[in-house]
């Protein structure tokens, strides 16, 4: 474990990522303390430019709402949806991939055709259709993101399990009379953990991008202030008020960047043999 931290902290990008993410998480957690008022409330005149009033450093939007407060509450939504939808995608993808990879044959064929189908369908378009038809709210958004993001998990897990399946220690476990369930649980899955962790961190990033894109198109939960919604609402007034779309975009960029950096750091630290050996 200490080896892991040593390798992880040697990666400068990953450390920067952790710092950025820590700030974002902190802001999200402290949002109700820092901005006790609802982010939907009008606090000043509309289109107040940034830095013109100390109290509202990032200005106000077309309805006079505080942009900074919106960003803080948006962090909550982004992180929540990113993490929950990734967890849901893992819950679907890991069992499917593990079963397909371990049992092979017909089970593999059926499950992989199913996965392939979801992978071929343009994912963002499918997410739009799902959210639109089931009414935009936080549940439908999380479900839609999970539905379009589990296939890579299934494929990854299947590939790993497939290669572990023919590993000699798994064969030894079969010969020693352990049941399939025990073998999958004790011998196979623990050894797929590192690539899953790496993929999951990148998936949270992708989920945040997806959520913001949906909200941008007006498919966000109408009760939640989100970064994508803020940019979408500001789209038509971009000529008058650039800051309304600029700052939420930077917030998304930084959060997603941080997660990607962490993902790469994890990858290097968890798979040291693959990481830039010798350069």
């Amino acid at each position: 474990m200490s080896d892991f931290w040593k390798r992880f902290s040697r990666n400068r990008g990953a450390v920067i990522g952790v710092v950025i993410l820590a700030v974002v998480v902190l802001v999200a957690v402290l949002a109700p303390v820092l901005f006790p008022q609802s982010p939907w409330r009008m606090v000043q005149r509309p289109f107040l430019p940034p830095l013109s009033m100390d109290q509202y450093p990032l200005g106000t939007d077309a309805l006079g709402r505080d942009v900074l407060a919106g960003l803080a509450y948006g962090a909550q939504v982004s992180l929540l949806i990113g993490v929950v939808s990734t967890a849901a995608a893992l819950l679907v993808g890991i069992p499917i991939g593990a079963l397909a990879g371990y049992f092979g044959g017909v089970a593999d064929d059926v499950l992989m055709r199913f996965t392939e189908f979801f992978q071929t369908v343009p994912s963002f378009a499918l997410a739009i259709v799902l959210v639109a038809i089931f009414e935009p709210n936080i549940q439908s958004i999380i479900a839609a993101i999970a539905i379009v993001s589990w296939p890579p998990v299934a494929r990854l897990v299947r590939g790993e399990v497939l290669s572990l399946r023919s590993r000699e220690y798994v064969e030894a476990a079969i010969l020693s009379g352990q049941t399939s369930a025990t073998i999958i649980w004790r011998q196979v899955l623990p050894n797929t953990l590192s690539p899953i962790i790496v993929l999951a961190s990148l998936m949270v990033a992708t989920a945040i991008l997806l959520e913001s894109s949906l909200s941008f198109l007006g498919l966000g939960d109408p009760n939640l202030m989100s970064w994508g919604y803020m940019i979408g609402a500001a789209r038509t007034v971009i000529r008058q008020a650039w800051w309304l779309s600029f700052f939420p975009g930077v917030a998304i960029l930084l959060t997603v960047l941080a997660l990607n950096l962490i993902g790469e750091g994890l990858n290097d630290a968890l798979n040291p043999s693959l990481a830039r050996r010798g350069r």
Binding site: S213, F216, I231, S245, F246, I252, V256, N260
Partner: peptide
């Protein structure tokens, strides 16, 4: 890394701007 992390619609808006 930056392009990879930027939301597409935001880049589009900034490009217009």
């Amino acid at each position: 890394l930056l392009f990879y992390a930027t939301p597409l619609f935001w880049v589009a808006l900034m490009a217009v701007l």
